[in-house]
């Protein structure tokens, strides 16, 4: 029996920065009422609020699609960049190169990521760029009125009756394959899990890929769809119960030995994984790959933290940049002195 102590806090109206949840809101959403993307925006607001993130430090990046519009609907005090279709990863990378102190959150869709942007997704993950990469996955292209995307499951049906005959691309499986360091799958209809995963992502140093089933109520929420709310509710199988425990909070809840697993994240906080029917170790890459293969073959909707490697250096670490963000360097540090030019010129004589 392990024992830990902590106080149980009441839900605060202001966070440790003295900000209220309202300070994390954005413009009113223009998406369809009930769209999964809006549910995700709400949880983003909650996660950033609860994790005491300073809004001005955040950069919101996105591609094109209904999902990619959402950065306008949360964190109105953060800079946002709604770029071009499928290219959010390069935009996020560039922003982080310029200012490594930013907290980057990227929002993409399944069309934006799994089709036109798959190349950039692959390379961003491979580089381990510090970024929370959210895929709001609805199996269709919402903004262009409901065509199948590459994450649509085999044999899934559109409302028109059209059947998808191609296998789906499993972005989480791919991410693990590519060396991703934080890979999670979740459901817009499971806010508790989602918020814990988002807070864990905020505490993680490298790329955090969150593939979130986010039903499109207008084009893909009918019987026969495998990306609908009903399908999600009926089929979600959490692989564990998740709690996010910030570094500054001690834990007093008691668990029986072997009933939970704690993973410490880069910033010192913890993800507590409470065991369900199997003991799953998300730091084991082989196990993660096996589990995801099993999920894909048997069309299981497994959610939770699938894989995490808290310590792998990020892309910015490998570049050995100075601590000051490049964007803030003053002229004296950017422009070498005249003697340097003289020396270089002399070497060409």
């Amino acid at each position: 029996m392990r024992k830990r102590t902590a106080r149980v806090r009441r839900r605060p109206r202001a966070n440790r920065l003295g900000l209220s949840a309202r300070d994390y809101r954005g413009k009113p959403s223009t998406l369809c009422k009930g769209c999964g993307h809006d549910a995700i925006s709400s949880q983003l607001i909650r996660a950033f609020f609860e994790s005491d993130i300073r809004p001005h430090q955040v950069a919101k990046l996105s591609g094109i699609g209904c999902s990619s519009k959402t950065p306008a609907y949360f964190l109105g005090q953060s800079h946002g960049f709604n770029s071009v279709h499928g290219r959010m990863p390069s935009v996020a990378t560039g922003a982080m190169l310029a200012n490594r102190k930013l907290i980057a959150v990227g929002v993409s869709g399944d069309g934006d990521t799994a089709s036109i942007g798959i190349g950039q997704f692959v390379h961003l993950v491979r580089r381990n760029v510090p970024l929370i990469y959210i895929v709001e996955n609805n199996g269709v292209y919402g903004l262009t009125k409901g065509q199948f995307s590459a994450t649509a499951d085999e044999n899934a049906k559109l409302r028109s009756g059209e059947v998808n005959r191609l296998p789906n691309i499993d972005l989480c499986g791919m991410a693990v394959e590519l060396g991703a360091t934080y890979v999670a799958r979740s459901f817009a209809g499971d806010p508790k899990q989602l918020v814990a995963l988002l807070r864990g992502a905020l505490a993680h140093s490298g790329t955090a890929v969150l593939d979130i089933l986010s039903p499109c109520v207008t084009f893909n929420n009918h019987p026969g769809s495998t990306k609908s709310y009903t399908w999600g509710k009926d089929n979600e199988e959490p692989i564990h119960l998740l709690d996010f425990v910030p570094e500054f909070e001690q834990i007093e809840v008691e668990y029986e030995e072997g009933q939970s697993r704690d993973v410490q994240l880069h910033d010192g906080s913890w993800i507590r994984l409470r065991k369900l029917d199997q003991d799953y170790d998300p730091t084991n890459r082989r196990a993660a790959r096996e589990l995801m293969l099993d999920a894909q073959e048997n069309n299981r909707f497994l959610t939770g933290l699938l894989y995490v490697d808290p310590d792998k250096p990020t892309f910015l670490d490998t570049l050995e940049m100075t601590d000051t963000p490049l964007a803030h360097l003053e002229e004296s540090r950017l422009r070498p002195p005249p003697e340097a030019l003289d020396r270089i010129v002399a070497s060409y004589q």
Binding site: S90, G94, L97, H123, L319, M321
Partner: peptide, 29 residues
């Protein structure tokens, strides 16, 4: 430590996307 970052991108779309975003965020890109 470097006062620069040079990145070989995966293609020119990514190269210019990174450069523009870096310019957006205040770098000389």
């Amino acid at each position: 430590k470097s006062t620069f970052a040079v990145v070989q991108a995966e293609d020119e779309l990514a190269a210019v996307g990174m450069a523009l975003a870096a310019g957006w965020a205040g770098a000389r890109a």
